[in-house]
Design a protein around this nucleic acid. Structure first.
Lengths: 232, 232
DNA sequence: TTGCGTTATTGTATAAATTACACTTAGTGT
DNA sequence: ACACTAAGTGTAATTTATACAATAACGCAA
């Protein structure tokens, strides 16, 4: 760190890998670019950080502008700073992932200026993305996969009330492998932070499953020791 | 991402948390600042990224300039971008950690221009650091602690040949808790990537322990499946 | 109302991993 | 040869993970 700060003639951006879960499939939000470079390509939503804005703050703002949603769990996962990653100039991008409930009441409404359109795309068959966005996605997905084991991120993707089968499908989608139903349920319930509701699925043409919700208080209580170790 | 790239009037820096292990203690490399702001404070070694230099490259260069060492395992762990984290202007810093063998032949030789001095300091009793460097350290240490469980980072801190007791002391220093000797040895040896040498400790005033070395080939073979899952 | 189709729900036996725990051995130095 | 120090070693108990399939509940249609 130097005293006289030479200016760095570059731009800083945020790119977001926004995960959603819908119809048993894991999806991310993509935009179609309306101008060069990479005109007509699909890309991750992202934008530039403002001069007077912290990057966490910027990430929140940009996600809000792109989806209309606020206060989501956003987590920074990597910064990409290769010199030539952007053909128009030096752009260093800080990548975040976010987890949202696709089915929540609000529509996802991206800014028009930004892209021709925005849409959800299944992660299982992503096309090549603009810039190094395929790498960014891959890195982010791996982080999410890993964090799934020790952070309650699944519950940010599911609706408030969900069935154990939905939870299992989500785990299977993220981990990309089949899990044993009995063992899965046994394990999830053994944690003690899933609250069984007096309510069942509706509008299904078969036996309705019990609904559960994630009990944030109990989760915090159960894992406060672990967290303390992390912080200490 | 915009087409016409407005310039971001800021500096990008790299800060390094450089871990070493010596005399049974985990240490990091600090510098003492020679000028304001934070004159005379201790700080993490760091420097600005150049205009035409990728950040990975910059991290390698900066670490080299500060220690004379090359080709170390460096890993990016977080980017700090609060607006006011640096009193002289906007500086966004990408933080890396590195793991080195303090006792290796070469001396650590920091650039003079940079700081009054550079020295190893035990992590167990760090003073307050300049800027937000205490936070950076804390975040980095937590990442290292977590990665210890699934990446072979311990062997980058130990000498080429080491005893199981040294390995255990290192684990205890990073995890900050006592481990059971028998269980620890059993588990480490069960992985199958530690090679027992026909050699013992020298110059000790008690029974000499067997020396082991980390077998990178075997490690790669054993964990290639896991890695494939990560990449896929 | 009966039967069919679909998904929900549940337990047990086995294997693997983790934990708790203390004495004997080997070498050094006096 | 004695004392000191750290090295080295095994077993039983517990917990956790895995493999595996039949029955119950419900909607729907005949």
């Amino acid at each position: 760190m130097e005293e006289n700060l030479p200016k760095f003639e570059s731009a800083i951006s945020i790119d977001c890998v926004i995960f959603g879960f819908d119809a048993g499939e894991l999806k991310i939000l993509l935009i179609e670019r309306s101008a060069d470079p990479f005109k007509d390509w699909y890309a991750l939503p992202g934008n530039l950080v403002k001069q007077d804005e912290g990057i966490e703050e910027a990430a929140g703002r940009i996600l809000h502008e792109l989806t209309g949603l606020n206060d989501l769990h956003m987590e920074q996962f990597h910064t990409f700073g290769e010199v030539n990653r952007h053909p128009s100039g030096r752009v260093i991008t800080v990548a975040y992932y976010a987890l949202i409930r696709i089915n929540s009441q609000k529509e996802v409404k991206p800014l028009i200026e930004f892209a021709k359109k925005a849409f959800w795309h299944p992660v299982s068959e992503l096309p090549k993305l603009a810039f190094d966005h395929s790498d960014i996605f891959k890195t982010g997905f791996n982080k999410v996969r890993r964090r799934l084991h020790y952070q309650p991120i699944a519950y940010e993707l599911l609706p408030e009330k969900f069935t154990l089968t939905q939870l299992q499908q989500l785990y299977e989608a993220i981990l990309n492998k089949k899990l044993d139903k009995r063992n899965f349920r046994k394990k999830m319930l053994s944690y003690g932070f899933l609250k069984e509701l007096d309510e069942k699925q509706k509008n299904v043409s078969f036996r309705a499953a019990k609904l559960y919700k994630f009990d944030r208080r109990k989760y915090a209580k159960i894992f406060q020791n672990d967290l303390n170790i992390e912080e200490s």
